[in-house]
Amino acid sequence: MDRHFQCTLCGRCCYGMLPLTVEEALERAGRVPLALVWMPVPKGARTFETVRRLGLEVSLGRHRTVAVLVSPMAYLPPAMPCPDLTADNRCAVHEVKPVRCRAMPFDPRRREDDQSDSLTPRPDWICDVSAAAPLVYEDGHILNRMAFDAEKAALQAQAPLLRAYAESRLRLSPNVLQDLKRVDPRRGVTGTLALSFTTLLPRLPDVDPTAFADAQAPVLEANLARTRSTGPEGPFHRYYREVLETVRADRR
């Protein structure tokens, strides 16, 4: 099916969580609250094989298996805009914006021939998908694929690092597996699991943990102050509070 698409600068895709590469996350430590978000996909889902190749396969017991992608994330509530979104809905860092933003609306976490519904705007988005917009997807192929391929390459390059990290956490921290079981879609509970980005730092020998903590602490403090402990912001508020304690300890 041929699909047309053009961004109208509505800014609605610039709200909430944003997947980043490890490098992008480190570069933005002084701008956004960071997390390592675990995203389980049940076996049988269309994205299972792609996510498994980029992440890892995890048995949850009782014949339940999920593919899990661990992604560095700008960890923002759904209603909170990216700090780089300007008042006129433009990107303040357009020339150096993350590969996830560049590849939109396509996503290499899915097969190339499974991108059609990504071109359907969400209810409050006003993307132009009329016949007057540029043709971007034809017969299951992305026509202008430079940004898509760049993000795919970035995900593949960091996959061994994040896979080794995830396997280690599952082996050493049984509570991580228990938390994954609670968000398993096959049990009727969807969602993600967020762990502190600081848990990855021991695998990044060139990163100074104190410098990272100095960058993240004021960001976490600011986001803790602007979010509520209840409602949709509750999980984010609690995460900021808990991680801030760890980050403050790293600054001592």
Rank of each mutant, 00 (worst) to 15 (best):
P83I: 00
V70R: 00
V96D: 15
R52Q: 13
L143Q: 08
G140P: 08
P83E: 03
T50Q: 12
A157C: 04
E138V: 01
T120S: 13
T21N: 04
D88L: 00
D139S: 04
R102Q: 15
D114G: 08
C127Y: 12
L26I: 05
E95T: 07
V129P: 14
R100M: 10
L85T: 03
A25T: 02
W38H: 11
H141S: 10
T86H: 06
K43V: 14
E57R: 01
R53H: 13
R28P: 13
Y137P: 14
P72A: 01
S118H: 15
T120C: 11
G55M: 06
P108K: 02
T47D: 14
D88Y: 02
M80T: 12
L135F: 10
P108M: 00
A29G: 15
F148K: 02
L56T: 12
A74V: 05
K97V: 00
T65H: 09
D139F: 00
A35P: 09
L155N: 05
R46Q: 14
E49H: 02
A29T: 07
G55Y: 05
E95M: 03
V37A: 09
L135I: 11
E57H: 00
L20N: 08
P40T: 04
R46Y: 12
Q115L: 07
A87L: 09
P121G: 15
I126S: 15
A25Q: 02
T120P: 13
R64A: 10
Y75P: 01
A150K: 00
M73P: 08
K43G: 15
S116A: 15
A157L: 03
P77D: 09
V129K: 04
F48G: 12
P40M: 01
V68M: 09
K152H: 10
R145I: 08
V68G: 13
P105D: 14
L76M: 10
V22M: 01
A153R: 02
S116M: 08
A103G: 11
E49A: 06
T47P: 11
T21E: 07
L69S: 11
V41M: 09
E24V: 03
P123W: 03
L54N: 13
F106M: 04
L143K: 03
D114Q: 09
V99S: 04
G55L: 04
A147L: 03
A29N: 07
H94N: 12
A154M: 08
T21M: 01
A45M: 05
A157Y: 04
E112D: 07
H141T: 11
A45E: 15
T47H: 11
R102C: 11
R46G: 15
V37D: 12
D149F: 01
R122N: 14
A92W: 08
C82L: 07
L60T: 14
L85N: 06
V22G: 08
P105F: 07
R102M: 11
L36V: 03
P160Y: 04
F48V: 08
A29S: 11
T86P: 12
C82E: 14
